[in-house]
Design a protein around this nucleic acid. Sequence first.
DNA 1: CTGAAAGCGCTTACAG
DNA 2: CTGAAAGCGCTTACAG
Lengths: 363, 363
Amino acid sequence: MAKKSNATIADVARLAGVSTATAGRVLGRYGYSKEETRAQVMEAAKKLGYRTNALARSLITGKTRTIGVVAGDIQNPFYASILRGIADVVESHDFGLLIVNSDENLQKEIGAVNLLLEKQVDGLIVSPCDTRNAQHLRDLHADGLPLVLLDRTVSGLDVDRVTVDNITAAERGVQALIAASHHRIGFVGELLEDLEGGLDGFVKRGLEGDVLSTDTLYPSWQRLLGYLRAHRRAGLPVDCSLICRVGAYSAKAAEKVVGEFINKPDRPTALFSNDGTMSEGVIRAVSAAGLTVPDQLSLVCFDDLDWMDFLSPGISTVAQPRSAMGESAATMLLERINGSEVAARPVMMPAEFIERGSIAICQ
Amino acid sequence: MAKKSNATIADVARLAGVSTATAGRVLGRYGYSKEETRAQVMEAAKKLGYRTNALARSLITGKTRTIGVVAGDIQNPFYASILRGIADVVESHDFGLLIVNSDENLQKEIGAVNLLLEKQVDGLIVSPCDTRNAQHLRDLHADGLPLVLLDRTVSGLDVDRVTVDNITAAERGVQALIAASHHRIGFVGELLEDLEGGLDGFVKRGLEGDVLSTDTLYPSWQRLLGYLRAHRRAGLPVDCSLICRVGAYSAKAAEKVVGEFINKPDRPTALFSNDGTMSEGVIRAVSAAGLTVPDQLSLVCFDDLDWMDFLSPGISTVAQPRSAMGESAATMLLERINGSEVAARPVMMPAEFIERGSIAICQ
DNA sequence: CTGAAAGCGCTTACAG
DNA sequence: CTGAAAGCGCTTACAG
């Protein structure tokens, strides 16, 4: 049995000797049906290899049981883990998962959202590449489409979101370095976006007190804030020349910039690398410079990538709960899809500092 | 403008003062339409924030411009890179990408395929978890659905596929070790499946000459074949006790088994680790045993993971062309979807041996 | 509990 | 070049 999966409800109904309405009721598991009728229809369906056409059903019900995700790059371990978390909850609810990469490019993001909307997804999880320029996302929400923001937020868009408490997390990592008597701690981050007042202005404000509305700041800037706060609370001055602004989100770029950075005579005694991809570049640069970790240079990274554990020495790092982030985002989205109308939930997850062997006491 | 994306073609047609057929023609870019009419319709569409409902279109055309992928685990760097390759070609053709994890579990795979079929994907890329028990995949092909197999093949299913030339690749890696005078080379692989004749029988056959029909063998067994072939061609005997069968696809499991393996008095002088995940376990075990690579133990891995390059010493490895594998699979699938009826293409991609610092001359 | 009819939002012949 | 009508494969009221 079961061949040619192009049988329709009409075919099944005909073979079973019932109306399409009845056949539809038993095959779609809605409405009433007599035990006997059900058996007949099921048998006919089996004989014909009937398979529901979700398209037709969705056209009527207005629900596709499919959600869309716009991620920066599914190949990046950060997103890969988050996606796994999303996929786990989505799959357990028998939903489909449509995934598109944005490469952190606004035009691609807009195109991706459009594609997903045309396919009528029931909801969207987006890691927005631009926190201000995001009218397409605001429109989505205004149209009532369930939407969850991931990793970043968007100004003027009050929807469910899951982010990491980057400030506290970075502060914790830098504190560990300060506790080991380091006073010249380099900060390595992409710090891509241009902020008003520039880097110097930002540092000045960050040192004067906690910056308000840090929500829509990009993660690397938030982490810089944590770096500043750790210094401020320890009563330590900040040397702006120790802030290494890579200016691109790539391990190669980080390697190059950090290479020059640590080859200067007044190089830092420790480095705080603000991201997994940056960290790869840092490790390469440090190794190329022939510096030993932690003896000649202490190191704390961000995001616990597989290799940080077995690299020798183990890399102390701030671990983001990646899978849990994905699970949380997906769970909230499904709740919205199921009609929840609670106020927007700004889920900010804590990151855990993992102490390993990359910090030495500064002499 | 552009709000409420629930306007239909009928709404646009009404506002533009034309028939739905005409509105459909201009919005769907098919059939003829006068320049003037087109302008009117476009303006009405813009005013209403019209967006195509791909569901309705697909129901008629029978095409969804969406493909499905069943991967083992999207979080695994092997699959993550392949998926990126797939996504790149799919996105460039304006197709959607539906992804499901199988966790290498047959029941989940069957469920995944079913979900994707109900959503009417135009084609499927599957890394089958079972090379024999795969009637659901054979049925797919019999039904005429475009299907491409990834990484593994299925016996009795002659469709497009992209695999790696595992035998040659592994042979090349082991050769490098033999060339450095190693005679006691351990092989670490999951070797999950039970083959007739067991491991011993397999080794015996592998040493007698090239095993026929290696196609449907699982990758780790193919790689073992490469290990055997390298020995045979070098005139070296094979000690079965050096073949470390992990029996599970997990770094943890590999770490445990390899830990015991290399703590024995007659431990190998070199290790060939047959997979990225196994390699993680191997590195942890080696490091826990306090052995120095390559001085006390030489090492060659499989699949070039990020860390293999910057781990010190660099890990010599056999690199699989992951992104290219995904691109190739997706390209072939789209060709089939576009009607290509050439004979099934068994694409077997070469893996490149990357020499770094993990091999020392055996004293 | 079942069936006839309408309709979801499009595209496709078919006339004109 | 345009429109009226039918139809893709389902589900949804509405009668009975």
